[in-house]
């Protein structure tokens, strides 16, 4: 399986990219949807709070390889937490988003990390802490250093972004994509198992996807 997976990759990559599931988590109005929208559609608009979950896909080229990111943008509102937990399952990667102008959202991101670790085995999921809204840096409540330190202490990746100014947004997702590919190539069982699961449900959908 691992062989089949790895060696033909350059050939199959264009038609059958590997599928990775990425969830966006964080409190309400920190900019999760804006990050997703900026990345997938290169668009920014002030949108209403997400209702439930929103789903996006994007095929990313990383060097010679390409992969398909299934992005689950979850609602920050408490009332939707039960439904969003469903989509933690089988996630390969998570972006923990906070708003650099709101300390509470930073603390909430730490809470999300705990929730995530309860649902998934640590190390199984690639996590990046994202401080969004650097365009509002004059109102900053969480310093870069604070974010960085917390991320390091938890072995998370870390970046600061501005979805509004399109600062570092694609870098975030591309870094994740690269890491995911590397991990998938490098590591043994756990991530490969995940990828296989994702692929198992993938083909049917993808086949139709190509048809339209």
């Amino acid at each position: 399986m691992a062989q089949a997976h790895r060696t033909p990759q350059p050939r199959t990559a264009p038609s059958q990219p590997r599928v990775f599931k990425l969830v966006l988590l964080g409190s309400g109005s920190v900019g999760k949807s804006s990050l997703a929208l900026r990345y997938v559609k290169n668009d920014f608009k002030s949108i209403l709070p997400t209702v439930g979950c929103a789903f996006f896909t994007k095929v990313v080229d990383v060097g010679a390889a390409s992969l398909k990111l299934e992005i689950w943008d979850t609602a920050g509102q408490e009332k939707y937490h039960s439904i969003c937990h469903l989509y933690f399952r089988g996630a390969n990667a998570a972006l923990l988003v906070y708003d650099i102008t709101r300390k509470d959202s930073f603390l909430k991101a730490q809470q999300w990390l705990k929730d995530l670790e309860e649902e998934l085995h640590p190390g199984e999921v690639l996590v990046m802490l994202v401080g969004n809204k650097t365009d509002l840096s004059q109102e900053r409540e969480v310093t870069f250093q604070e974010g960085k330190e917390f991320a390091d202490s938890q072995k998370l990746l870390f970046m600061e972004t501005s979805a509004k100014l399109n600062h570092q947004v694609s870098e975030v997702f591309n870094t994740m994509a690269q890491e995911l590919l590397q991990r998938d190539d490098r590591e043994g069982q756990a991530p490969r198992g995940d990828a296989a699961v994702a692929l198992n449900e993938g083909p049917a959908r993808q086949a139709k996807c190509c048809a339209h």
Partner: peptide
């Protein structure tokens, strides 16, 4: 009214 909301302008949404 609900589906007309701008929140649904992008992506595929799933909500109770």
């Amino acid at each position: 009214d609900w589906v007309g909301a701008p929140a649904f302008a992008a992506g595929e949404a799933w909500a109770p």
